[in-house]
Write a protein that binds this DNA or RNA. Structure first.
Length: 588
RNA sequence: GCCUCUGUAGCUCAGUCGGUAGAGCACAGCCAUGGUAAGGCUGGGGUCAUCGGUUCAAGUCCGAUCGGAGGCUCCA
């Protein structure tokens, strides 16, 4: 098993050192907060990725000005070079010492009986803490940290417990690393798909018309169609059929599938018509099962691979909605595979290979797999689970993918593989999922007739390769920062006349490009050429074709590539060049 | 859902001490415009999220509602 690489000792030590520094930083911050609010109740303050936080129960709300003041106290604390002193104490003493600190009391009481209890003292600040810490506050870099934000956080993450105020900070070994991190945060903001969606006029959301519901604008639509066309073409090449199913179904369907028992709180409520309850679909599977159960099936006909860009609706709590990444209505690139036990192994291999091919086609090179196996509570015959898990594992190994195992992490109805990709900024996104289902075939009593004449249960596999069109679109926008490869660019080429006298030539050139299958436009507005170039540069259009006297006479174009590179080519060569970039799915 | 912040023109934002709204971009019209990142002038555009309250007077103060953003264990 080639599970994710274990960090070597040196890395581990380095990591430990920086964690220790961040942890100490959290204490330094808490001291600052107590200077401003001597009666504050302190909760927990761990190191985290890139920094630290600390939770407080305070008499009033924190403001950004408070953060500045706290930062000042922190600088002072560091300058004072207080040593961190550890002291092991008895449980009784700990309870007495923290008698005014409710949260600490709770923590102490929750510690296992034989656990050593320790205090860390730093100047006049004493905290219940396991450690470890740096030797003294002077070891911390006063130029390496910054308080970032104030957020609400439930005590112990439990929404029934009190809401505390959390201060997030980031901390690094030196000012240079801090600066790099802050620049990284800026880059994230620049690439935010919500921001780029507005700037590039790709999509919108409308509170008045319903939060979490996506409107695709023409430019976003062009990109989506490019994705869908490719998707359909590849599915046909890979032996899939397209099916189309309704958006709503009567309660019988959702009772039979079990969704009304187990999934109702994620569903849109019922619509009543002709005294029957209809529900918007949160999943496509029961509909595909209806198609399957429409007739008898022979082992000779299997496998079936039925795909659908199926739009589903799910209720997500309002606080969890986020741009395109978490929405209430979305289109899954769904498919269901129905096969015999003998075919299962091959089907899983194929679908995994297909998944990887699709993700790589969109420029995702760093892909890892997560295999989740049978949980304690599950439905379906254990031997079938075993066979399914084995086939998933073998498929991963045959693709020599890195993977990690989530033992017992599968759904109650079947094991699965999730694929996660790393984007250009190193963030992981889960896109593909390949999932066995031992529930629906039983509930809907699905069968096929085997070679021995017996009715048998087929294997059913759900899979989505891109996940959903909306989420995938959001990930693509952030991955490319809006500068898409040519085949995905909403507008692939803009023709710009140098002056109004060449409008006709520009328009004609755009038509020639369009006829050659390129998404091209001519910009005949009354802006000056320089303004047009600037505009389209900000729109991240791959190719700008400048047309003037010379080009008109020679039937050529002067190309300005998005990268700033320039060249002059006969029109036919330009078309060939652009079409090649499109076909190869490359950047301009 | 809960906490904090937030909501002013299509977009980004300013608006002082409470005295009936402003800029840039975008849009429209006119003028200008021949070579690789912003030509000029003029103009239209606002129930200051919604509802209520305080006040002689509310974009501004207070309350509620509806959105949006960040966050809600990486356990001392």
């Amino acid at each position: 098993m080639n599970q994710s690489t274990i960090k070597n000792d040196k890395d581990a030590k380095k990591e430990d050192k920086i964690y220790r520094m961040r942890h100490s930083m959290a204490h330094v911050m808490a001291r600052g907060v107590l200077k401003i609010f001597p009666d504050a109740k302190i909760a927990i303050g761990p190191p985290i990725e890139n920094g630290f936080y600390y939770d407080f129960d305070l008499p009033r709300r924190l403001t950004p000005e408070d953060l500045e003041e706290i930062e000042k106290y922190m600088a002072e604390t560091i300058a004072a070079d207080f040593p961190f002193r550890k002291e092991v104490i008895s449980r009784e003493y700990a309870l007495e010492f923290f008698k005014d600190q409710d949260y600490k009391i709770e923590l102490i009481n929750d510690l296992p009986k034989d656990e050593e209890i320790s205090l860390y003292q730093m100047g006049d600040f004493i905290d219940l803490c396991r450690g470890p810490h740096v030797e003294s506050t002077g070891r911390l870099n006063p130029k390496g940290f910054k308080l970032l934000s104030i957020a609400g956080a439930y005590w112990r993450g439990d929404e029934k417990r009190p809401m505390l105020q959390r201060i997030y900070g980031t901390a690094w070994n030196d000012a240079k690393q801090l600066k790099a991190h802050l620049e990284h945060l800026e880059e994230l903001e620049k690439r935010d798909h919500r921001r780029l969606g507005k700037e590039l006029d790709l999509f919108s959301l409308h509170e008045k018309a319903g939060p979490g519901l996506v409107y695709w604008h023409p430019k976003g639509g062009r990109l989506r169609v490019a994705v869908e066309d490719f998707w359909r073409q590849e599915h046909y090449k890979n032996g899939y059929e397209m099916v189309f199913t309704p958006h709503v179904g009567k309660s019988w369907l959702w009772e039979t599938s079990g969704h009304l028992d187990f999934y109702a709180e994620s569903m849109y409520p019922n619509m009543v018509m002709d005294k029957a309850d209809y529900y918007a679909k949160p999943m496509n599977c029961p509909f595909h099962v209806m198609i399957y159960n429409n007739g008898k099936h022979s082992y000779r006909d299997l496998p079936y691979r039925w795909a659908e860009l199926g739009t589903v609706y799910r209720y997500e709590r309002s606080g969890t909605l986020h741009g395109l990444l978490r929405v209430r209505g979305f289109t899954q690139d769904d498919a269901h595979l129905f096969c015999t036990p003998a075919q299962m192994q091959q089907e899983i291999r194929e679908v995994l290979r297909f998944s990887l091919y699709m993700l790589r086609s969109f420029g995702f090179r760093d892909i890892s797999a997560y295999l989740a196996t049978r949980p304690e509570k599950s439905v379906g015959d254990p031997s079938r689970w075993e066979a399914a898990q084995q086939s998933l594992k073998e498929a991963i190994e045959s693709e020599s993918l890195e993977y990690s195992l989530d033992e017992g992490g599968g759904a109650f109805y079947g094991p699965k593989i999730d694929l996660k990709v790393k984007d250009a900024l190193g963030r992981q996104w889960q896109l593909s999922t390949i999932q066995f289902d031992f529930n629906l075939p039983d509930r809907f009593n699905m069968t096929f007739t085997d070679s021995d004449g017996d009715e048998k249960r087929p294997y059913m596999i759900h899979r989505a390769l891109l996940g959903s069109m909306e989420r995938f679109f959001g990930v693509l926008v952030e991955h490319y920062g809006g500068a898409f490869p040519v085949w995905l660019s909403p507008v692939q080429a803009v023709v710009i006349p140098v002056a109004p006298a060449f409008d006709d030539y520009a328009a004609q050139t755009a038509r020639t490009l369009q006829a050659a299958g390129i998404r091209a436009e001519a910009n005949l507005s009354n802006d000056r050429m320089n303004a047009k170039i600037r505009l389209h540069q900000t729109e991240k259009i791959p190719y700008m074709l400048v047309a003037g006297e010379r080009e008109q006479q020679e039937n050529s174009v002067s190309i300005r590539i998005r990268t700033g590179e320039k060249m002059e080519l006969p029109l036919n060569d330009a078309i060939a060049l652009i079409n090649k970039k499109i076909a190869d799915k490359e950047m301009p």
